[in-house]
Write a protein that binds this DNA or RNA. Structure first.
Lengths: 152, 152
DNA sequence: TTATCTGCAAACGATTTGCGGCAGC
DNA sequence: GCTGCCGCAAATCGTTTGCAGATAA
């Protein structure tokens, strides 16, 4: 397997060990386009080597997270989604009802990121923002969020 | 106990039963100022009546959620936070490292909500937005999100 | 009366952890 | 060879659910 992708170089910089497991996980993660859950990454990894455990996937994701190489997002459900940080900026509008997600242009968020940086001294993770709400087909007819009782 | 707060009236409109348990939970929820977890609401409820179960709290929160009376937010951790919808608009910047949350002025988000409404036909839940990032004291010195290895 | 609600305890899904053995460096 | 890493299985945490009895309407 290619032992020299971008992420692996970053790991070297951090001085952590490059194990075959990590190499495979990194390979998978670098190829992923959208947002994947740990389980999805695990499934992908297992196609390459079935003897890698889910715990290792979680530990590697934690590692990458603490190095800032990937970002995570809670898109409303219990599950956490992961994405490589420099695979472009992707923001989301997530529907509270059907969980459909809409990708949003980056420019929308620049004023907010600026304001946060200058006024609150807060470095927004502009690679991964989430806005909850209601999509076109799930939007209630009445005042926003007033009549959702049907889905019980 | 006061059987006539705002939320109870709303429940009546929806035709669901007003049980003592619900009355107590609603009372607690109406008084809460910030964001509470189900457990915190449960603890508060137990001070009034120790025989109300956590499951009932969750079921009531679900009910209120589906009626749009409360909103929920995942502030990065596994836990879900709840807030009454018309206790003003409160947005958050949440630090990925220390989980400190900063309250944000509403005006910042109006352009985004507008753009979402007009361009994507998406009704943003402007009562409860979350931006992840790094706060002043946890911000890495290097490029955003580059050097976080210490907290392992 | 009767459909809805409750408490209990067990189930659940995602994630974490303790531990003995293994293997990069 | 030392230290950090792995796989396994059990533990944890927040949340949901099945069921049988209770109760608001």
């Amino acid at each position: 397997m290619a032992e020299s992708n971008e992420l692996i170089d970053k790991l070297r910089e951090f001085g952590v060990r490059i194990t075959p497991q990590r190499a495979i996980i990194l390979e998978v993660i670098e190829d992923l386009t959208g947002h994947l859950t740990a389980e999805e990454i695990f499934a992908e990894v297992q196609k390459i080597n079935a003897y890698i455990s889910l715990a290792t996937v979680y530990r590697t994701l934690d590692l990458l997270k603490s190095m800032g190489l990937i970002s995570e997002a809670n898109l409303g459900s219990a599950t956490t989604y992961y994405a490589v940080r420099d695979h472009g900026t992707h923001h989301h509008a997530v529907c509270r009802v059907c969980h459909k997600t809409i990708e949003l242009p980056h420019e929308l968020f620049e004023p907010i990121a600026d304001a946060l940086r200058t006024k609150a001294n807060f470095k927004a993770d502009v690679n991964h923002l989430v806005v909850f709400g209601w999509c076109e087909s799930c939007a209630p007819q009445t005042e926003c969020g007033e009549n959702h009782l049907r889905n019980n």
